[in-house]
Design a protein around this nucleic acid. Structure first.
Length: 966
RNA sequence: GCGGAUGUGGCGGAAUUGGCAGACGCGCAGCGUUCAGAACGCUGUGGACAAAAGUCCAUGAGAGUUCAAAUCUCUUCAUCCGCACCA
């Protein structure tokens, strides 16, 4: 009987004694493959099912690649510094070094239990001084190259964690760790200049364009691009009316303009006011001119007090007009009012915007509230609409036929005049109306095949485009119902309304209703009176720029601005520099010393590491805990020798995890973070697998580090992870997230105890594609358990029964299937499609069991090799039962015989009008002519073809033939 | 709101250069084995009609392109994820 406990225990021990099985060979000449898991944070809870999923995936690929002859680097380590460990320590009053050590031991134990083939001698631990020495070294490297700097400014402060946070860790104004709202504090902090690497430089591809050359999930690339938030636009100076550009002020220190940033200069003629953020410095300068200064000051004070969260909570736009101040639109010299409002962000762009209520929803809302004019400047232009499809020209007419339920009259929309005609009940049929309308339209326009695209109950609708009355702009109407005269609208059930987004329009407003792909939004705004279309179009009401497309207009407008020196092209980014200081204990100390005389002095490289003291009270106070250690803090200045103080903040843990993948190539190196030779040998990472929660933070930071090192000549690649995949989340059986509070956590230990590690590995891989979210199903595991048991039964039978294999002869068909499976499993592993690889193995096993005679040992050996990456324990055990002395993982992956698996005979599918009517076996390479002859003699086909005229026959070699009949 | 992804039997999921929809597994049903159960083995298993052969319907919904659509295009709905007053 298959005893997983015994087998797994046995091989765990043997593998432990032979670490060379999984060793990455620094000297080997074979092609390298670096397969990496995101190193885990060792929590006290141990491995969870998600870890098992991604680690099994990389383990399968590692084992497979080794058998394929690659020199595989598959290491593991510990992201040991960080807030969770420290918070746990605070709670339990046990030092984080102790709890972390314990957790690591537990993790390692569990990983060995799962049979993961890590190269343990390369293990790294980010909280070891051997490791963080180099984290500090990187800090100094950045510092020396002007990429680490200290700056006072508004930073995110979490009062619960008592530390500052990076923007990335304080999304939506909430602390990523403890979910408390984040405050803004003015503090002096260390930053890394990540913004220097957004765009390409001479040596290195930027964070943006680098994404184009890596094989990553599209969603992850998008998230990064989004986070970087590049937008190209222009700045424009709006002179202040009271300070109109004049020689008098040219040399004055007072700024006499408001500079705004916009991506839509083309809408400038629709600009009816200007808004500045409360933080906008110029306001203070204008103090004397603003008549309602008290009110303005009051508003600014209030806005400053709000946290980001509060700002977002109140969706209603508020603001105050700066009385006595007016700005001038440089294009038409109109004077427009200036507001201060907190819907404009101080830290983005120039902190001021030109407001175009007709084309910007936020401006529109504000304009409505404060009763400001709405002026359109852009009308939609059909030709420029990227979503226009190739049939648009044929469909530029609409009509609607609607039944009035009260009197059963039909209303027919005259497509030319958009007037409604009423047809009395019974006098005419709906179908006749449709036909008549179609004919009329066809005759008038010359367009054939007018199609009515929608029918709801008795109402019929079509699409059309017709010229706007003031311009050549085409409007697109869709699913329209017109309300007219006293005829009541045809009744459309609520459900249908929801389904089809029926838009109700009054006839006399039709001409205002220009365009629209998203008519719901636009129409609502029209009802309120003025908001229009926001995408690119053609300019209207824009003086000499009328008629230009947005694209052309932007170009010309910017040219003019640059010529007049009142504006220029500009690119803005949302990404800001990376704030790395943390007022916490459990992290790598920042290697800087402050001297009263020399100021900021970096610790010299030879004095690294700056050891984290162990005798510190780590309870958070808001001040860095390291301040408490006099021994740590009081030092001599490296420059002048006078007494000085160490920086007491530690580094963000993401700094530690930004370079760990480099260290694995040379983990014991005392002189460098890794030798150039070894970096060249092993990096970049060929496959990186880990959770999707790291799409922005870790992956962006790691890329930044790589780019810095590349730029400074340390490494020869500028993207660290060539191929990246995320494992999908495994949900609990109840469909919710696994969580201690729900009590629905599946513990891998329990599953292994009951079914074995092989079963758990196999099951998690069989559940579905690696990247999909999956729901745990306890019943499902029985399927793979049965599979393993049947494998054991089948193969152990050979070794236990007689050794006479002479008479055994498995059919050629089985042999073909075996070779097909070799091909399929290999291909699937490479494509990370483990679920279908396993199913191929199941199919092969089913066939082997069906054979009348005992399976051939040779076939079993093939089978075991294919199974080995998935279920290493069972495969190794049966392999040795077959009398093999050397580990199965030292064997090479079987080759398939491509001649053998070439199909000689195929089932040709015979379709008639696209429906399968017959299948016949023919030679794989049958010619079209032969095939046609053969199938026409088939009885079934003849029956189908009786007296019918064959219009056409389509032949797909080796697959199918489709007969088209009348 | 913007961006991304997904939608196929009772369930997990196969099939993506357009070419037999539902591989493999779970579950369920019947039979065998058994004193009985468990386990195991065999058979069946998308829906409708039919004794059967078979026919028709079916990949969230609606249209389109095509000899042929789960797959391509458009529209629409739902769910999940990311970003979100970024001008």
């Amino acid at each position: 009987m298959y005893n997983h406990k015994q087998i797994e225990k046995k091989w765990q021990k043997i593998w432990e004694e032979h670490p060379e099985l999984y060793r990455a060979d620094d000297k080997s000449k074979s092609e390298k493959k670096y397969i990496l898991d995101m190193f885990p944070y060792p929590s006290g809870d141990g491995l969870h099912t998600g870890h098992v999923e991604s680690y099994t995936a990389t383990d399968i690929i590692s084992r497979y690649s080794r058998m394929k002859g690659f020199n595989v680097l598959h290491p593991q380590g510990w992201d040991a510094f960080g807030l969770p460990a420290e918070n746990y320590a605070i709670k339990t009053k046990i030092h984080p070094a102790i709890t972390t050590k314990k957790a690591i031991a537990n993790f390692k134990e569990q990983m060995k239990m799962m049979g993961f083939s890590y190269d343990w001698p390369r293990e790294v631990n980010s909280s070891d001084s051997d490791y963080y020495k180099w984290t500090q070294w990187f800090f100094l490297l950045l510092y020396k190259n002007g990429l680490a700097y200290k700056k006072k400014g508004k930073v995110n402060w979490c009062d619960s964690c008592k530390t500052v946070l990076a923007n990335e860790q304080a999304e939506n104004g909430i602390c990523e760790r403890c979910k408390n709202p984040v405050e803004q504090k003015d503090l002096e902090q260390w930053f890394f200049k990540i913004t220097d690497f957004i765009e390409d430089n001479e040596q290195t591809s930027g964070l943006l364009s680098g994404l184009d050359k890596v094989d990553w999930p599209e969603s992850t690339k998008m998230a990064q691009r989004n986070w970087i938030g590049k937008s190209e636009g222009t700045t424009i100076k709006f002179s202040i009316f009271n300070f109109q550009f004049s020689n008098k002020f040219k040399n004055s220190n007072v700024q006499n303009y408001i500079e705004v940033f916009t991506t839509r200069v083309d809408t400038i003629f629709g600009c009816t006011y200007v808004v500045v953020a409360p933080e906008y410095k110029l306001i203070q300068e204008l103090k004397d001119q603003v008549k309602n200064w008290l009110e303005v000051e009051n508003y600014i004070e209030k806005a400053k007090k709000k946290t980001d969260l509060q700002r977002m909570e109140t969706k209603e736009k508020t603001g105050v007009k700066l009385e006595g101040i007016e700005a001038v639109n440089p294009f038409n010299n109109e004077t427009i009012p200036v507001f201060v409002a907190d819907y404009v962000l101080g830290h983005y762009g120039t902190g001021a915007v030109m407001a175009v209520p007709a084309h910007d929803e936020r401006d529109y809302e504000f304009a409505k509230k404060y009763d400001l004019p709405v002026k359109e400047a852009v009308a939609p232009y059909l030709k420029d609409n990227p979503r226009q499809d190739k049939n648009t020209e044929k469909r530029n007419v609409v009509t609607a036929i609607v039944k009035n339920p009260k009197n059963n009259n039909y209303l027919c929309l005259d497509w030319k005049t958009t007037e409604w005609k009423s047809f009395p009940a019974g006098g005419i049929e709906k179908d006749d109306l449709i036909t008549a309308a179609k004919r009329e339209i066809e005759e008038e326009t010359g367009y054939k095949n007018i199609k009515f695209i929608k029918q709801i109950g008795d109402s019929v609708f079509a699409e059309f485009y017709r010229p706007h009355k003031d311009s050549n702009v085409y409007a697109h109407f869709k699913y329209l119902l017109f309300e007219l005269e006293n005829e009541e609208m045809a009744e459309v059930s609520q459900k249908e309304k929801n389904q089809h987004e029926v838009v109700w329009i009054e006839e006399n407003k039709v001409d205002f209703f220009i365009n629209v792909w998203n008519q719901k939004l636009i129409w609502k705004k029209y009802r309120q009176g003025g908001f229009a279309y926001c995408e690119d179009g053609i300019l209207i009401n824009s003086a000499e720029y009328n008629g230009l497309t947005s694209e052309q207009a932007r170009q010309q407008l910017i040219e003019w601005l640059e010529k007049e020196k009142i504006g220029q092209k500009k690119t803005n980014y949302k990404l800001r520099d990376w704030l790395v200081s943390r007022q916490r204990y459990w992290g790598a100390p920042i290697p800087i010393i402050y001297c009263d005389v020399c100021g900021e002095v970096p610790v010299s490289e030879k004095n690294l590491p700056v050891e984290l003291p162990t005798d510190v009270d780590f309870m958070p106070t808001g001040e860095s805990p390291l301040v408490n250690s006099k021994k740590f803090q009081n030092v001599k200045c490296p420059k002048c020798g006078l007494s000085a103080k160490r920086e007491a903040d530690t580094m963000d843990t993401f700094v530690c995890s930004s370079w760990y993948y480099l260290r694995y190539s040379d983990p014991k190196n005392k002189k460098e973070f890794a030798s150039k030779k070894k970096l060249e040998k092993w990096l970049p990472v060929d496959l990186y697998v880990g959770g999707a929660e790291h799409t922005v933070l870790h992956l962006l930071y790691a890329r930044f580090f790589t780019k810095v090192l590349h730029n400074l000549g340390y490494i020869d690649f500028d993207e660290p992870f060539i191929k990246l995949r995320h494992q999908g989340i495994i949900l609990a059986e109840d469909g919710r997230k696994m969580s201690k509070s729900f009590g629905n956590v599946v513990n891998p230990d329990d599953v292994v105890k009951q079914y074995g590690a092989d079963a758990l590995r196999l099951f998690e891989m069989f559940m579905g594609p690696l990247e999909d979210a999956k729901q745990w199903n306890t019943k499902g595991i029985i399927g793979v358990v049965r599979f393993l048991e049947r494998v054991y039964k089948l193969i152990s039978r050979i070794s236990h029964e007689s050794k006479i294999n002479k008479l055994e002869s498995n059919g050629n068909e089985l042999n073909i299937l075996l070779h097909k499976t070799i091909k399929k499993v290999g291909k699937d592993i490479e494509a990370l499609k483990f679920n279908t690889a396993i199913s191929a193995l199941m199919i092969l096993l089913n066939e082997m069991e069906k054979q009348p005679c005992k399976p051939q040992t040779a076939n079993c050996k093939f089978f075991l090799k294919l199974l080995a990456p998935f279920a290493p324990y069972l495969a190794e055990e049966l392999w040795s039962q077959l009398g093999n002395k050397e580990s199965i993982f030292k064997q090479s992956w079987p080759e398939y015989d491509s001649e053998l698996i070439r199909e000689k005979k195929v089932i040709l599918v015979v379709q008639i009008n696209g429906k399968v009517r017959d299948k016949i076996e023919v030679d794989a390479d049958i010619s079209e002519k032969e095939a046609k002859e053969v199938i026409l003699f088939q009885k079934k086909i003849q029956e189908w073809l009786q007296k019918k005229e064959i219009k056409k026959m389509v032949f797909v070699p080796g697959k199918l033939i489709n007969i088209v009949i009348k």
